[in-house]
Nucleic acid binder design. Structure first.
Length: 273
DNA sequence: CGAACCTCCTGCGGGC
DNA sequence: TGCCCGCAGGAGGTTC
């Protein structure tokens, strides 16, 4: 479900409620997520949250003793700010009660997500984070780094931009959208996309992610932000989930195929091999 | 090393 | 209405 814009939307929603707050209570109702919730998580009760950061699709909740609470939303997760007295919903697995009376609730039906407490200083070399590529909206990602990643790769261009070692945060929706904006068909081999088109693609990735953050992310089915509201970028999608519908630029029917095990959408007229 | 395939889990929509 | 099937926004693991 959540890609980078949805995670960033969540971060922006959580941060004002969480930063500076003390954690009054930690509640773990289910620990069997993709990895078990760190045993002894309630050890952070009484500590204070100093900030909420994001790296790739991970949320990093900083604790005042230097530890970091790492949260990943997987395919179906959300992190919401509720009143501590609010009724529990099915699949609310972890909650932090804050000294404001609010509660951060982690909700994840499919349990593909993570809630892990990392020791002080362990964040940069943690296996989940250590090998991540550059942030798409940061300085580390450019036409040059994308071109270097595409050189001698036989994989499709779509698979390369979804490879977190190349650039993080580009998931299945925004991969199709960025390729549409760059005019490149998703099944084109990465090594066959020229430098000018790669430059266009790098810019398209930045643009689509930036705009999606501005709209509070994309809700296809069940993404909700920290207030429980959907994101509005879906109406700006050009191709994703629009198979058979007219291209919003040229009216040619949008095509769908499975590329790298994932549904993929493109306009056969606007996008070239 | 890269690429293809499989897996975790629950819910929902479509077809019959 | 109800049941079965396929599919879903992520990403780590296995195999060749």
């Amino acid at each position: 479900m959540p890609e980078l814009p949805e995670v960033e939307t969540t971060r922006r929603g959580i941060e004002p409620h969480a930063a500076g707050r003390a954690i009054r209570e930690v509640i773990v109702r289910r620990h069997d997520l993709r990895q078990p919730v760190t045993p002894g998580l309630d050890d952070i009760a009484g500590r204070r949250i100093t900030g909420v950061r994001r790296r790739s699709k991970y949320l990093l909740i900083d604790i005042d003793d230097g530890r970091v609470l790492l949260v990943h939303l997987g395919m179906s997760g959300s992190l919401r700010v509720t009143d501590a007295a609010a009724a529990w919903r099915k699949h609310d697995h972890v909650a932090l009660t804050l000294d404001s009376g609010a509660q951060l609730r982690y909700h994840d039906p499919r349990r593909f997500g993570l809630v892990l407490l990392l020791p002080h200083g362990a964040e940069t070399n943690h296996p989940l984070l250590a090998r991540l590529g550059p942030e798409p909206l940061g300085d580390g990602f450019s036409a040059a780094t994308l071109a270097a990643a595409c050189r001698n790769r036989s994989a499709t261009i779509k698979q390369v931009i979804m490879d977190g070692g190349v650039v993080v945060g580009v998931g299945n929706i925004y991969a199709s959208e960025a390729l549409f904006r760059a005019g490149i068909r998703p099944r084109t081999r990465a090594s066959r996309v020229g430098p000018r088109r790669l430059a266009r693609l790098a810019e398209a990735i930045r643009a689509v992610l930036g705009e999606a953050i501005g709209q509070g992310g994309t809700t296809l089915r069940d993404f909700v932000n920290s207030d429980g509201n959907p994101g509005y970028f879906r109406q700006r999608l050009f191709v994703y989930d629009r198979g058979g519908e007219p291209c919003r630029v040229c009216a040619t029917p949008v095509r769908r195929a499975v590329v790298g095990q994932r549904s993929t959408f493109w306009c056969p007229a606007c996008q070239k091999p």
